[in-house]
Design a protein around this nucleic acid. Structure first.
Lengths: 110, 110
DNA sequence: CTCGTATATCCCTTGACAGGTATATACCTA
DNA sequence: TAGGTATATACCTGTCAAGGGATATACGAG
């Protein structure tokens, strides 16, 4: 059973999902907006489709893809037990992101 | 830059985090509770540590690991734009999980 | 100092997966 | 029908990461 987290590990797939959060899109739109080769977009969409993240509607030669929320709800549910660690400490994330920013700018490791 | 999602793709690592959500634990406790070989636990902890998911405190020969919330907050933040798809439709997740259950029980594909 | 315990690291093998290229399929238009 | 557009699939290849086993390091007890 392919975990939803495995699917989300791929950056292009997350980008596709974020794009579809706004509105549904054809494959070509995704291709040009994200600057990913068509063949690659199709392959990622296949993975997303089989995992239930998206579904396609046929419009002549086009396939219009739209989001399906269930797998993301699953992720959200997994996250629930951890929320108590940060509710009420809103700006800890902000500090964390700043630190990450610095690491990838300045950063040489060890 | 290793994405937090990449880290979470590994099931054992998610299990470790879930375990630490309850309380901090030594490596040995994690090993016996999750039934993962010690060498494997240590390697996963290293990954989690370097990605900021956990931190270790030294107690004699033991290392006590505890959760750090920031990377999970990041994930939570990424998820935010999608929440509008399911707030108010609480039981869609339940139906989804049922369907998954059926697939992995009955399931032969195509 | 030696032995047992707790944890980390090294090396090696294996499998999964993403990207690229080429090609197939489907539909539309003329 | 032919040619163009839109999307999917097959095959190949390189990379990367997880798991196993052996070993190193650190600490405590006696």
């Amino acid at each position: 059973m392919e975990s939803s987290f495995t699917i989300l590990a791929e950056p292009n797939r997350r980008a596709i999902l974020s794009l579809l959060a706004t509105s549904e899109r054809s494959v070509g739109e995704i291709e040009s907006r994200l600057r990913i080769p068509q063949t690659s977009v199709s392959k990622h969409l296949r993975v997303l489709r089989e995992a239930g993240f998206v579904e396609a509607r046929v419009d002549a030669q086009r396939r219009i893809y739209r989001l399906r929320p269930e797998p993301l709800m699953e992720v959200d549910a997994w996250l629930a037990p951890f929320r108590r660690f940060w509710t009420g400490h809103v700006d800890a994330l902000e500090r964390h992101l700043d630190r990450m920013e610095q690491r990838s700018t300045k950063g040489k490791k060890r």
